[in-house]
Simulated assay, not measured.
Amino acid sequence: MNKKSSSLTAGIDYPKNWSQFVDWFHDEQACRDYLYALRWPNGFICPNCLVHNVPYTLPKNKLKCVQCRKQTSVTAGTIFEKTRTPLKEWFAAIWYLTNQKNGVSALGIQRLLGLGSYQTAWAILHRLRYAMINPERDKLSGLVEVDETFVGGVVDINQQDKKKFVVLVAIELIEPKGFGRIRLRQVDKATKNNVEQFITDVIEPNSRIHTDGSAIYGSVDNMGYSRKKTVHLGSNIPAHETMPGVHRVASLLKRWLLGTYQGAVQSKQLDYYLDEYTFRFNRRKSRSRGLLFYRLLEQSVTTKPLTYKDIKTR
């Protein structure tokens, strides 16, 4: 059960600092116990028959349902399934990832954990980025700006053929001033169909959508939304002033990708980076890094396993 942040307490529900983190998660059993409480806060529920009971405990950290006799484990069916990396190292990676304001690279995780393989660190980070997005999250609402931007492209004279990727951006505006949550999505092209699907997926009906004058947004009024249209062509007012939200997000996203990952992002993995940026932006006002650690770990135990092949081909 996803607890409200207001009901969670630093030092009780999650570590409040690094010293406490080290004290809490000193061995694999401590990590498994914490995952168990996160996954089954009201007691074990068999993933197979959904019966609520106390399981048998078997060797090698296996759990056996007393009803259907199916064996499972606290990591089965989660982002940690079949991992060869100790949970202590996973926890350290999650703490480090959520405590770094601008993100971390796979090389940084490799050095931090002392991993022998860069690929292992790379896969860990991508799995955690995948877990950052809750598919059941609430849609955006109120006044929402929507636009498209380009990510990637030429960053030096030796990369003349580097392709730009199209990213759709939606951001809530908080009146009279301020920004709310965002949603990002990579698409092959900024077409009418792609934009309509994006809007339907991420914005609540009856919201007011602010767009530019592009024809790809022409059907918004017929989709259960009201549209505020601003035509930039020929206007004396810069686009970043009339639609400040989407332009701010696009600018910060590009700067973040360039600064943290040197712009070295491929199309197949861009979705993972967009997930991470969305997670960070939407929690930018969080005063507790420990709470971010808790939230990502909580989502990790409800996220289905992701194989290395899945990461390469997502």
Score class of each variant (00 low, 15 high):
Glu89Asp: 15
Glu89Val: 13
Phe91Gln: 04
Ala92Val: 15
Ala92Arg: 09
Ala93His: 08
Ile94Met: 07
Tyr96Asp: 07
Leu97Tyr: 03
Asn99His: 14
Gln100Thr: 10
Lys101Ser: 12
Asn102Gln: 14
Val104His: 04
Leu107Lys: 12
Leu107Asp: 14
Leu107Phe: 15
Ile109Trp: 12
Arg111Met: 10
Leu112Gln: 07
Leu113Met: 12
Leu113Gly: 05
Gly114Ser: 05
Leu115Trp: 14
Gly116Phe: 04
Ser117Leu: 06
Tyr118Trp: 15
Ala121Tyr: 09
Trp122Phe: 14
Ala123Lys: 07
Ala123Val: 13
Leu128Ala: 01
Leu128Arg: 06
Tyr130Ile: 00
Ala131Asn: 06
Ala131Ile: 00
Ile133Met: 14
Pro135His: 05
Pro135Trp: 07
Glu136Asp: 10
Asp138Cys: 11
Leu140Trp: 13
Leu140Tyr: 12
Leu143Met: 09
Leu143Asp: 08
Val144Ala: 01
Val144Asp: 04
Val144Phe: 01
Glu145Val: 03
Val146Trp: 02
Val146Ile: 03
Glu148Cys: 11
Thr149Met: 09
Phe150Trp: 11
Val151Gln: 05
Gly152Met: 01
Val155Pro: 00
Val155Gln: 05
Asp156Glu: 01
Ile157Phe: 05
Gln159Tyr: 01
Gln160Arg: 04
Gln160Asp: 04
Asp161Thr: 03
Lys163Phe: 06
Lys163Leu: 04
Lys163Tyr: 08
Val167Gly: 11
Val169Thr: 10
Ala170Thr: 00
Ala170Lys: 01
Ile171Lys: 08
Glu175Ile: 02
Pro176Met: 05
Lys177Tyr: 11
Lys177Trp: 07
Lys177Cys: 10
Phe179Thr: 02
Phe179Glu: 06
Leu184Tyr: 10
Arg185Gly: 02
Gln186Phe: 08
Ala190Met: 15
Ala190Lys: 09
Lys192Cys: 07
Lys192Trp: 12
Asn193Arg: 14
Asn193Asp: 15
Asn194Ala: 11
Val195Gly: 09
Val195Arg: 12
Gln197Cys: 11
Phe198Arg: 00
Phe198Gly: 06
Ile199Phe: 08
Val202Thr: 07
Val202Asn: 10
Val202Cys: 06
Ile203Thr: 04
